[in-house]
Design a protein around this nucleic acid. Sequence first.
DNA 1: TGATTAGTTGACACTAATGTCAACTTCAGA
DNA 2: TCTGAAGTTGACATTAGTGTCAACTAATCA
Lengths: 245, 245
Amino acid sequence: MTGIVVNGEVSNMTKPASKGKGIPAEARIRSRNEAKILHSAVQLFAAKGFDGTRLREIAEHCGLPRANLYYYFSSKEGIYTTLIEQLLARWDRAFEHIRADREPSRALEDYICAKLEYSRTHAVESRFFANEILRGGKFLTHRHRSHMQQITEQRAEVVRGWIRQGKLVAIDPYHLFIMLWSATQFYADYGFVAARTLDKQRLTRKDFATAAETIAETVLHGCCTADKPASCNDPAADSSRPDSR
Amino acid sequence: MTGIVVNGEVSNMTKPASKGKGIPAEARIRSRNEAKILHSAVQLFAAKGFDGTRLREIAEHCGLPRANLYYYFSSKEGIYTTLIEQLLARWDRAFEHIRADREPSRALEDYICAKLEYSRTHAVESRFFANEILRGGKFLTHRHRSHMQQITEQRAEVVRGWIRQGKLVAIDPYHLFIMLWSATQFYADYGFVAARTLDKQRLTRKDFATAAETIAETVLHGCCTADKPASCNDPAADSSRPDSR
DNA sequence: TGATTAGTTGACACTAATGTCAACTTCAGA
DNA sequence: TCTGAAGTTGACATTAGTGTCAACTAATCA
């Protein structure tokens, strides 16, 4: 599931939308169908990229006639950019565990667990993003790019603070983020390879738990000056832990 | 550069090929043009995937008329599978540093450096492979898959040996490989994101050196029981170090 | 119930993709 | 320089892609 689908499409059609009429409390046809389309689209874009995906395939996948897609979205690009918007809105969440007021070992561990949980439950969205990156981020606007950069910079400063306090060994924050990001991302993007490596058809919940343990133990022991972390499944962690879903 | 291009195409055309004639020592037209085509193809496939790449684009990119491509390859799929073959032939090399007779810290460090060097110099091939994986490895045969698995298994056994000898902490070899693989792979596949993260247009040689240092220090300190590793650029390493090119 | 808006859909125009072919040029050896 | 093989290429057939449109049905409200 793509979750709550925001109506992000900036349509070029003439639609009064709010003409004073009462909104029928019942499931709006528009939002239901837009969600259907986006849900099908993200899966196909994730596997075959923008150029490789046919509108006919999306239509077949979600059981609507192809022409109907043009009623809801102005073009293939319209569908794609709507998905990009949705995805980028979530970019921040990945980093929300990295806060100055937390112990680095706990914060990094929670980050790893949350990111892995996202890889497990949102593998499709993750692959969609990977595909966009592989093609050089052609659909990412300047706004998207600077947003990503700004968030990263904020969190890098938190890491630098930890280092100044002697809580973390001197490490390049950006390369640390890349290491954590890539390790957790891998289980979604390369899920196929990961499963083959582990000699399985599909990755199980347990595989993700082992992954979390391995990454956390290695990275945290490798760069934290304090004690070892607890397990991700240990509810006795510090402070508030935002839900990854 | 794609390097040495093997004539891997199993063509369905009638071509005697070796009819007793002496092979003209001079640059063979066939191999030159096949190389041209493959070199252009890998770049386009890397960016847009199999379905997203048009044969016309490949033809334009390498300056040959489209019809000429069909003289050298039976189809688009023929070009693609030739590239897959070439790539998989190199799969083994990534692991050649992981040998039982080496110290794990040295071996893992060399692996990291070699893999990053590959990401730096062969980013296109790396992205081509990533694209294939994202689409679920549709073009990987059973032979490819079991080959990958077999090589991985061999090297996992080496890691288990190191753990038995107390040279490495108890760690899941597969997840260790995934961690190393993903961190190094990232700089090729997500080069765009990595560059943005580091606030640059393109990754420099120095960025790769810092990446190597960060990954090596973190991972090796995190899982090796012995001392810290030397730098990748330090020529005073142990034994033979196969060239990554 | 009748008018208005929202949503559906087959058909169409247009462009472009793949793969084939036959006629052509170039090359290599006798 | 002649000949057969290798290599080149414009044109073609076929299929499929995107986006538009007008006519249709369903929903909503006065």
